[in-house]
Amino acid sequence: MTPRSTLLMQSARPLYWMLLAAALWILLRGHNEPGGGFIGGLLAVAGSSLLAIILGIPAALRLQPLAPLPLAMVGVGLAVLSGLAGALHGLPFLTHLWTGIGLSTVMLFDLGVFFAVWGALTGYVYALVDAGETAP
């Protein structure tokens, strides 16, 4: 895998940002149109995988908000937190709340899903890519 094409290496970062932007867009519109945290998360995973394969894992890690495992845990934590908001209002756990200006705990939950998928799956992807690079 060592001789990488210059064109690929040059285009990797812009491609990553495009994929990430698409992922975020899909995440945010997910409640009303096709999309959501799972799909957005997978697109982000695709972007990170691209970076990891072309530019190496360190480069991919630099452009991710957190390392894979912490990111996944933060995602699960966000989802739990979004559920607690309803519980604090005396409603059953994971009852979602909305504010007047369109923000809601549903968004927080979906963001949690997004981070959990992004973090956990990139953890696997990096491991596999890393294993591939060290293969005999």
Binding site: F38, L42, V117, A120, L121, Y124, V125, A127, L128
Partner: peptide, 13 residues
């Protein structure tokens, strides 16, 4: 699908 993906990655490792 997402869980299956995680499972496959695990199996590959």
């Amino acid at each position: 699908i997402v869980i299956g993906f995680a499972l496959l990655c695990f199996a590959l490792v």
